[in-house]
Amino acid sequence: MKDGDDQAAVGCDAPVRKIIHVDMDAFYASVEQRDNPALRGKPVAVGGSSRRGVVAAASYEARKFGVRSAMPSITAKRQCPDLIFVPHRFDVYRDISHQIRAIFSDYADEVEPLSLDEAYLDVTQDKAELGSATATARRIRERIRAETGLTASAGVSYNKFIAKLASDQNKPDGMTVIPPGRGAAFVQALSIRRFHGIGPVTAAKMEGLGVYSGADLAAKDMDWLIRHFGNSAEWLHNLARGIDHRRVKSDRPLKSLGGERTFFNDLMTDTEIREALAHVCAVVWDRAAKKGARGRTVTLKLRYDDFRTITRAKSVPFPIIDGAALLAAGEAILAPLLPTERGIRLLGITLSKFEGESEAKDDGGSGTSAPADLLSLI
């Protein structure tokens, strides 16, 4: 991307910004393969191998078998019998993340970490005087490889939404550049399931309405979007046209993170509800671990079949340090609510009251942003 690119393509009169999204490739698993040569080229999962264990990260060799983060370990082993489990080392991952962020600071003053292994950088000012955002992204990736022995993929574009999509386009160890004049076409060629902020439930609703791609979404007018998606209409309208006005923000503390799941069939039995809780806790802890976030307050959300919604919270004396502790806190909150006479149609878990809140970052930004109901983790 060079100065003078078509400003009209970004959907506003403001100068075109230059945004890089850097995403480490299979970060946790790659660190383990780097530090243990015997694991290189083999399917590796970071996490517990017990019956109640959960995969925190999977190497690309494991992903070929469908192994993915937040998957129960027993399922992962079934799909990949040769899968090698290694325990997590979050202190190591955090140290490497700090090393990578130090590299970022040489190229951008505005850096917004999303987790230990990914971040947005606003390089509009060309701090390193390399001439273009593309050259900057290339240099950053070279330094990460040279200084950590790890690979990173990058997306370069004029806004956060497209930069994040682009970083996933040529993984692993790839880079994709989408200039303003090509943003809308790039977005419209993608499945709506690739859209960051549109989860499986919303994607399924869209597909039920005949919307499968960005082009399908762009073809819908505002009246149709408002009728089917309410307050999310403007946000969806903009995304389908490659418009995202959110700025890279490096000073927004993480206050909470969570996830929830809406069920097609209401849960009635204690076993079903506890299994759902375990799954949601696994997904939430995966996100917390990636951010290096350790909270002390757990909030449970239940929505019954009559749409009555309740929340219950519990604080613990010491920060929660793993998925098992999060699940234990969730089960302690859930226990007095069982058995239930009404079906459960939604269950959610939120973690808050973090250590070092002033240092943690969330994935928000100013301007148009994804509504909370479309950011469900599940």
Rank of each mutant, 00 (worst) to 15 (best):
R138C: 06
D117K: 05
L302S: 02
P87N: 04
P72C: 02
A154Y: 11
G365D: 04
G4V: 07
D306Q: 04
A58K: 02
P172R: 12
D122E: 08
N36F: 12
K290M: 08
A185I: 09
A146N: 13
S105E: 10
K361H: 15
A325V: 10
E110H: 15
E110D: 13
W224T: 06
E61G: 08
G292T: 05
I19F: 03
R296Y: 07
F161I: 06
G149E: 07
P15E: 11
P319K: 15
E272Y: 03
S366P: 06
S50G: 15
Q125R: 15
T136E: 00
R274A: 03
A185M: 08
K2V: 10
T124Y: 14
K77R: 15
A288H: 07
F195H: 03
G53M: 02
A133W: 10
L39S: 11
D25W: 14
L326W: 01
H21S: 03
Y107E: 00
R143D: 09
S167G: 12
D270Y: 07
H279I: 02
M175K: 03
K361S: 13
A233P: 01
E118A: 06
L327A: 04
N238F: 14
F104Y: 15
R52L: 11
F186H: 03
I96W: 08
H228K: 12
A133K: 04
V44L: 11
E359W: 10
I344Q: 00
K290S: 09
Q169S: 13
A219N: 12
L116S: 10
R138M: 10
T309Y: 03
I321F: 03
I74E: 05
A313E: 03
R241K: 13
R94M: 11
R247H: 13
V201T: 12
V10D: 04
Y60N: 11
A29K: 06
K160L: 11
E142I: 11
R287T: 01
G367D: 02
V22M: 15
H196R: 11
S191I: 08
V284R: 02
I19Q: 00
E110T: 13
I243P: 01
I178Q: 05
A62M: 14
A204F: 10
V16G: 04
P43Y: 07
I378H: 09
I226L: 12
G199D: 04
S157N: 07
F264W: 07
R182W: 10
Q79W: 15
I103P: 01
L334H: 05
I344V: 15
E341T: 14
